[in-house]
Design a protein around this nucleic acid. Structure first.
Lengths: 332, 332
DNA sequence: TTGTACGCGTTATCAA
DNA sequence: TTGATAACGCGTACAA
């Protein structure tokens, strides 16, 4: 018992489309008697408004897109779900649907295409690299509403974790627990987050009067194998570190493995702290001390921000940083 | 330099909309000279067809929906990304976009709503429980094209891993490596997968002439804490098991922890095998032997199957099972 | 080979 | 309070 259009309903009830539309939209300008009659029919007739017709006529789009470039998946897969949760929640609350796109690498033209063809009303770009950030200019020209998630630029509203602070508190924790020779395992070049964590690391060292030693910095490219290699290198130094801050948890795991393999103990001989608080941290042996990013919250705010800028476009962009949280477990 | 409709383009070129539409659709019935002229303009004018107008006119929808009930996220989060990858790939290949919905619990009405309102052309339902499977009848009545992913019913095409075989090879591996007293840590009631894995477990025992002992079966509800409790219980038996097959990796981790905490070694004293091959397995200490489901492939096929049934609806449904693979690491 | 004109199912303006 | 009617932008049967 379902009816395919307002028109059909209207004919059945001998009432104009417009009036039915009014009751559907809760418009008050309808006689109670008429409203009742329509509602009763609506109950048993099951009418589903055609979204395309509505969008076409109203020029409104209740869909936002979430873009995951696949080449960054290596770093984002573990929080993709939390991201989706946060964005979906904001969407639900505002009656927006969520469309997900995974691109092999960030593709600005495709983004413009999706917007211009009215597929989406705006886009959330997840963890695009510094290079990709340049391409935002193009999107801006086309007035595509955009929110950056875990990426930063002055060409779009940006949402992320205060990674510098995170790097600071991680390093500070190592210092506070008595470590004097603290190494840093760096992530990718051109990656905002690792860069900021590195700055926090250096700042903490400086604030506490510890020297910054370039030989205590190795690249691990966010991968645990590379972090293990980096760690072996660090351990073979004349004066090996007694604390390691890895720019993400995956690398912390690699570091811990390397330390163990070298016959040393974590945290007694070398303390290791990570970043991200991925699920494995809690289950690992030893449980990994790390820095937590409130991914769901950040994503929720990014989506809310996007919806906001869809409804009231602005030219002046902002960056919103969320506080990271130290999670102390056993590895440091 | 962008033009908002075919109409506008047509006026600029003094050519009818219909002809432009023809070159856009690669229709051959266009004079080469005309085609060239149009293409040249298209280059600089940047025209993006309005998707809603197209859908409205053609009655075709190039969007499929992927539904994740949140109450099952505890078991699905780790493969959600792989699922999205597989589905997105199938979509890309067929020019379909992907829309994602996370429902707090499976909501058939909302599914019907999305289909009837033309938001999506079909749906992939991920890991809905046996109970929810009942609600499919309603979707069928409304002729919603549906593919079940990691769930099974004779009311819709179903795609998943051959969990019984998986349970069989996991148990068989324990037996083959000399274990005689093999326990099973069960998942949730009403969960297809755990049930099937359990059947495989029993089958393997039977085939190898080992007795099935009800006291060797404990529920772990897919959670690692509960699995740890279950394991403690198992270890306190008069004749404790020397091998444990946990219905998922999360529980395998709990089991391993409990075994270690009891002062025993894995795998020497108790071998532990899991299921799913989640990322942590490889990184865990010891690395966890488990059974891998080809999640991306299964998802890809589910999506392809859905697209297929959108284009040629069928009343007779099928179930397609994919082969699991034993991944031997150190825990068993 | 090209073009006309109607239909798709809404929204929204304006008049009754 | 209600109802014609014109958009919205594209697809397509049919005609030229």
């Amino acid at each position: 018992m379902s009816v395919k259009s307002l028109e059909e309903l209207a004919r059945k009830l001998n009432i104009s489309r417009r009036t039915i539309s009014r009751v559907l939209k809760n418009d008050k300008n309808v006689a109670e008697e008429t409203r009742g009659r329509i509602l009763k029919h609506l109950d048993k007739e099951k009418y589903f408004p055609n979204i395309h017709a509505a969008s076409l006529a109203s020029k409104k789009i209740n869909v936002i897109g979430l873009i995951f470039p696949r080449d960054t998946f290596i770093n984002t897969d573990f929080f993709a779900i939390d991201t989706i949760k946060g964005v979906a929640r904001a969407g639900d609350e505002n009656n927006y649907q969520l469309m997900i796109f995974t691109q092999s690498k960030f593709d600005g033209d495709q983004c413009i295409q999706m917007y211009k063809s009215k597929l989406v009303g705006g886009l959330i770009l997840v963890a695009i690299s510094k290079d990709d950030t340049e391409k935002l200019e193009e999107l801006r020209k086309h007035e595509v509403p955009v929110a950056l998630l875990f990426a930063y630029s002055d060409r779009a509203d940006s949402f992320g974790c205060d990674n510098r602070k995170g790097g600071y508190i991680a390093t500070k924790h190592l210092i506070d627990t008595g470590r004097k020779r603290i190494a840093f395992i760096h992530g990718h070049e051109n990656w905002f987050d690792a860069e900021e964590r590195f700055k926090g690391y250096k700042q903490a060292l400086a604030d506490c009067g510890l020297p910054f030693r370039p030989d205590y910095v190795e690249r691990g490219y966010f991968r645990y194998e590379d972090a293990a290699i980096a760690t072996r290198k660090l351990l073979s130094l004349d004066s090996p570190p007694d604390g390691i801050f890895a720019a993400n948890d995956r690398m912390a795991i690699g570091a811990i493995k390397a330390v163990k393999d070298a016959g040393k103990r974590v945290p007694e001989d070398v303390a290791v702290i990570g970043f991200d608080n991925i699920p494995i941290c809690e289950l690992f042996d030893p449980p990994i001390t790390t820095v937590d990013q409130p991914v769901v919250d950040i994503s929720y705010e990014a989506a809310s921000g996007l919806l906001n800028s869809i409804n009231s476009p602005h030219k002046k962009f902002f960056t919103r940083l969320f506080d990271p949280k130290l999670i102390i477990r056993k590895s440091a």
